[in-house]
């Protein structure tokens, strides 16, 4: 029993990271129909930049803020320089662009930082908290709490603010949104900034537990995508639930089956979802316009 609880805790912790990545996918996907394969790199950058700034002498909270802002700026740059010029390009070209961006950012991180594995101190110390018969790291609570706060924040933003509603309108019908005077370019910029910032936040929160290095991004991308797909592509609630589920399945696999092959979970889930319910848990059937 205590073993199971322990696995559940660790599953919720990584699941929260995947949920944040999945939310990042969802924001950009809804705004533009683009699946941004560089999403995982934002997580990597969040961790790496924080580490770098912290090494350079900045206090941790400030270092984290710098990392989030810098990554958000990079997300906007990515949109301006690589996604916007290719508007209307076939899906395959957009995939190649964003995966190219992912590989490029990895390469740049290798040069700017290094190839080592890094970490920085947990926010509230390392003393594990006892819950029932298991223990949980205080940092885990930061990660899980972070995912929930971001989700609620996004929900308020999209339903309660004018800008958020504009983004939603654009995702429903780009042309109509333009016709009623919504600046869709601004919506795209905002979506990339938000999505990159959230990715970086995930990196900041998770690094004390999961550690970081230049090449961790692609794994996060794969698992975040699996979460988004399991929940139903484009559905924020689905992204949250899907991300947590992937984390839980992974932790249980690692605990009861094999810690090596927990990495296979994302791939297997993707295949199973595709086989049995392509719309995911919360997705609706979509009708392509002709």
């Amino acid at each position: 029993m205590s073993e199971l609880l322990q696995f559940l805790f660790s599953g919720l912790t990584v699941g929260a990271v995947y949920a944040l990545v999945a939310l990042g996918f969802t924001i950009i996907y809804n705004a533009s129909d683009v699946v941004n394969f560089a999403q995982g790199e934002f997580v990597m950058l969040g961790g790496m930049i924080t580490w770098f700034a912290y090494q350079a002498g900045l206090p941790l909270p400030l270092a984290a803020l710098v990392a989030i802002l810098a990554t958000a700026a990079l997300g906007v740059t990515l949109n301006k320089l690589a996604i916007e010029p290719a508007r209307g390009a076939p899906v395959v070209s957009l995939i190649i662009i964003t995966i190219g961006a992912s590989v490029f950012i990895q390469g740049a991180a290798q040069q700017v930082f290094d190839k080592q594995i890094h970490s920085f101190p947990a926010f509230s110390g390392d003393t594990p908290l006892r819950v029932l018969e298991a223990t949980i790291q205080p940092q885990s609570l930061w990660v899980i709490g972070g995912a929930l706060v971001v989700f609620v924040g996004l929900w308020l933003f999209f339903t309660r603010t004018l800008i958020g509603r504009a983004v939603l309108a654009t995702s429903n019908n780009r042309l109509a949104a333009q016709l009623v005077g919504i600046n869709t370019n601004f919506v795209m910029t905002l979506s990339f900034a938000l999505s990159a910032g959230i990715g970086a936040l995930a990196g900041v929160l998770a690094t004390p537990i999961t550690l970081t290095a230049y090449n961790v991004g692609i794994g996060f991308a794969l698992k975040g995508f699996a979460g988004a797909m399991l929940g139903g592509m484009g559905n924020p609630k689905g992204a949250l639930v899907g991300g947590f589920l992937i984390g839980l399945i992974e932790a249980l696999t690692a605990g009861y089956l094999s810690s090596t092959y927990k990495e296979a979970v994302a791939f297997v889930v993707i295949l199973l979802v595709l086989f049995f319910m392509p719309q995911g848990l919360f997705g609706s059937k979509s009708t392509e316009r002709v």
């Binding site: 690589a82 010029p85 290719a86 390009a89 070209s93 957009l94 190649i96 662009i97 995966i99 190219g100 961006a101 992912s102 590989v103 490029f104 950012i105 990895q106 390469g107 740049a108 290798q110 040069q111």
Partner: peptide, 14 residues
């Protein structure tokens, strides 16, 4: 290598 490959992919597609 990664820097170059990523750049080539993006530039060619754009």
């Amino acid at each position: 290598e990664q820097l170059v490959l990523g750049l080539v992919m993006m530039l060619m597609m754009i």
